[in-house]
């Protein structure tokens, strides 16, 4: 279990940076210290099953989510909230798929439809924090169990 989490964590950072760069044309810098989103948090969450089983959450301040959504759609940031939420959900989905494809390239996995919520949520054990110009980005993981043969 610990080995699974460690391996997933090592795949996570590349997946996050790549997804933001290629889908939102936004550069992310890994944060040295743990960060908290102060208020107005938007979070996208995806459940995964396969060689590893768990949940991945992407969270950021609403203002930062609006900024990346504008880049995602190539539009102005004053778009309807549901369009911003859809981008956060899609980004969580892409990050999770990318991480799992690197973790077990010969394996297989299923992802749930992304869920989007507002406000703080239960803290997951594995966290990676990033900075972008419009605010912090936090990606966290919780693993329920894993296959005995992950690779």
């Amino acid at each position: 279990m610990l080995e699974t989490i460690s391996q997933l964590e090592s795949c996570l950072q590349t997946a996050v940076i790549s997804a933001f760069e290629l889908m939102c044309f936004t550069a992310l810098e890994p944060a040295v210290e743990d960060t908290e989103c102060s208020d107005g948090i938007l979070r996208g969450e995806v459940e995964f099953e396969g060689d590893a089983v768990g949940r991945l959450r992407l969270e950021m301040p609403v203002i930062a989510a609006r900024s990346i959504a504008a880049d995602f759609y190539s539009a102005e940031p004053d778009m309807p909230q549901n369009q911003v939420e859809a981008v956060v959900g899609e980004m969580a989905n892409v990050i999770c798929g990318s991480m799992l494809s690197t973790y077990a390239p010969e394996g297989g996995f299923c992802l749930s439809t992304p869920e989007v919520g507002v406000g703080p949520a239960e803290r997951y054990p594995v966290r990676r924090c990033f900075h972008m110009e419009s605010g912090p980005v936090i990606v966290s993981l919780a693993c329920k169990s894993s296959s005995p043969h992950p690779r």
Partner: peptide, 27 residues
Amino acid sequence: VSTDATSKRVDRMLGLGARGYLTKPFS
């Protein structure tokens, strides 16, 4: 066009007749 880049999935989709496979995220 999928987030799933695992070889099993790619092979299956190509075997069913897809002519290409693009993994998200992409440039």
